[in-house]
Nucleic acid binder design. Structure first.
Length: 350
DNA sequence: AACTGGGTCAACCGCCCATAC
DNA sequence: TGTATGGGCGGTTGACCCAGT
């Protein structure tokens, strides 16, 4: 049932309450009349100064309530309906970067509100974690997302693209996350964009090679973080010509099978030395380290993105493919990967 | 038909920060 | 510098829906 219908159901109830407390601020569900007042007032005078706006508009609401109603429900560009796989994928990606920074995440999902994303995370993602009896934010949870849910969503996106594109073509335009301008604003002043999320062409065969088969995932993975292999190209750099397919090709050629190591801090959180020792050295770029669900951001020395939006996004996304590539599940999480494979792979999108 | 338990999501709460004075 | 106010944010609540019994 839509919120409007729900609101209508409450209308009589609220009206009665309003009569009782006519001099007090109203609370609870908004009526159509209130919505209309707010919409028309903002259309004439614009947003902001919410307390004053509430009074001027003749609403018996406090400013915060008006602001919330407008931003989460009435604003014209609010997108309705279920989150698409692309959007779900985006949320997983961005949450891995920023944690529960819902408003920040919402900025990169046009038409979606922080409240909606927060609800999605709590009702879908955390629910799945509970059902699997794993703590959301735990390492097992991270592995589950990386090894199963994300590839599953990527596959869904891929299937959608196949439907859109000619079935005869062998190369798919992986533009899922920019197709509806999700990231256009992110890299607005630069031609560079997220390796994982950018509009990038890649070969279907390579896609299949990096989407782990859940049933073989745990057995084929090294039990810890991996150093970049010795033959990893030292001149590899993220720049405008960077293509996701490059990494996919590398993944099949130089997937490290030894020199595994990991570090663990006092809190049992894993730090990723790759960022400090290798990626920084190789690519001379800013480490964003944390990136992983539930990690202590102080311990991980998470730096808030700098100055411009473009810079911020480049800095934060650049590491992503390496995270997915090198940050292999640990031995302790192998149980999860093995035991959860069937459950997760058969699971509908979050 | 009535009840129940779980899921969803709009709305609220409380805290924090920035700004004005 | 201290205080008041506005606004933003993440966490939580509770009304409602719906499927199962």
């Amino acid at each position: 049932m839509s919120a409007i219908t729900k609101r209508d159901n409450n209308k009589n109830k609220m009206c009665c309450k309003e009569e009782e407390n006519s001099t007090e601020m109203r609370r609870g569900p908004w009526t159509l009349e209130e919505d209309s007042l707010l919409i028309h007032y903002i259309a004439r005078h614009g947003e902001g100064r919410w307390n004053m706006l509430a009074k001027s508009a003749g609403l018996k609401r406090n400013g915060k309530s008006c602001r919330l109603r407008w931003l989460n429900y009435l604003k014209p560009d609010i997108k309705r309906g279920n989150l698409t796989p692309q959007e779900q994928l985006m949320i997983l990606e961005l949450h891995s970067r920023w944690g529960n920074r819902w408003s920040k995440i919402a900025q990169h999902l046009p038409g979606r509100t922080d409240n909606e994303i927060k609800n999605y995370w709590r009702t879908r993602v955390q629910k799945q974690a509970r059902q699997l009896n794993i703590e959301s934010g735990s390492k097992k949870f991270i592995d589950a997302i990386r090894c199963f849910w994300t590839p599953r969503l990527v596959q869904k996106v891929e299937q959608q693209q196949k439907l859109i594109n000619s079935p005869s073509t062998t190369t798919t335009s992986y533009s899922c996350l920019t197709s509806d301008t999700n990231l256009n604003h992110v890299s607005s002043s630069s031609s560079s964009s997220s390796p994982m999320l950018s509009s990038t062409n890649y070969n279907n065969n390579n896609i299949n090679s990096v989407i782990p088969n859940p049933l073989s995932c745990s057995s084929s993975l090294s039990p810890s973080f991996q150093r970049p292999p010795a033959n990893f190209p030292s001149n590899f750099a993220f720049d405008d010509s960077w293509k996701f397919s490059q990494l996919l090709e590398l993944s099949s050629e130089v997937l490290p099978e030894n020199a595994a190591y990991m570090s663990e801090n006092n809190n049992g959180c894993y730090s990723n030395p790759i960022h400090q020792e290798n990626l920084l050295a190789m690519n001379n770029m800013t480490s964003t380290a944390s990136g992983y669900y539930g990690m202590d951001q102080n311990l991980m020395n998470l730096q808030e993105p700098a100055a411009t939006t473009t810079t911020m996004m480049m800095e934060t996304y650049d590491v992503l493919p390496f995270d997915y590539y090198f940050h292999q599940p640990t031995a302790e999480s192998d149980w999860a990967l093995g035991n959860m494979a069937d459950t997760l792979w058969n699971m509908e999108a979050l």
